[in-house]
Design a protein around this nucleic acid. Sequence first.
DNA 1: CTTGCTCCTCTAGTCGCTAGAGGATGTAGC
DNA 2: GCTACATCCTCTAGCGACTAGAGGAGCAAG
Lengths: 141, 141
Amino acid sequence: MPAGMTIGEAARHSGVKVPTIRYYEQIELLPAPARSETNRRHYEAADLRRLAFIRHARELGFGIEAIRALLTLQDNPSQPCATADAIAQARLADVVQRIRSLTALKAELEHMVEGCRHGKVCECRVIEVLADHDKCEHPHH
Amino acid sequence: MPAGMTIGEAARHSGVKVPTIRYYEQIELLPAPARSETNRRHYEAADLRRLAFIRHARELGFGIEAIRALLTLQDNPSQPCATADAIAQARLADVVQRIRSLTALKAELEHMVEGCRHGKVCECRVIEVLADHDKCEHPHH
DNA sequence: CTTGCTCCTCTAGTCGCTAGAGGATGTAGC
DNA sequence: GCTACATCCTCTAGCGACTAGAGGAGCAAG
């Protein structure tokens, strides 16, 4: 018979922390596993695959609800994959947008830091730029 | 006597929403302003400058505690600006790191989306890659 | 005088966990 | 068997930075 693993073993195997696994069960992202006579959770291979899927999706920045949708799709493989594609594309668009705005931010921060002469606050570029938006190179934010 | 403006006017002027201004007051980032006879807040020019400073710093991604430190520095202009510089540099390092990881993510997502043949889920690249980390181009995450 | 906007306070919700209390169970060494 | 210590259980509360909504009062225009 398949012994199954404890929640701690599942955590080590999947890289998802123990409380996080319990949390995923609570929000019904992961099915509640069988319990031992003494009330301990026992995980099988299928649970581990699901956990790995979730972890990977989280690493790629998908939100819980998106992952829920993707898991439902995985459970119904005969459906068209347009939804999965749309979710991934939405995430990609979000990432692209974030990179854009972070790159602009980076330029602004570099501008601030480079201008700092390490003197007193009253002549500090960092404080000065923060206080006056017009001192930004590209004040489009 | 300086009339001062209502919280709504201060919000329109600064671009910070009304409830957010109240929230900043609650966490003591913004001093509690004078009140009218009927208990309404009245903001002066100094409050507006402080609000603009906070808003700009938030736009650049500084956390509330960092902003609190920066505001304290601004209030004490004779101190050396090493702290302000350190805060800005820490933020810059964070932004650089974020850009790096988002760029890696972008490549992974593009890989997923490009591979999608828009067929059924059972042959969908998106689901497939999520389920199997080894199918990533650069599985360094 | 009524309509509709703004203001007040307070509480609770968002997201994805994470931390901690307080208690039961399991394992290893003696 | 006894003693540590790790691991497990449930439950509640906290994080950051707001945001939403209830329920009520004030204000300005028609």
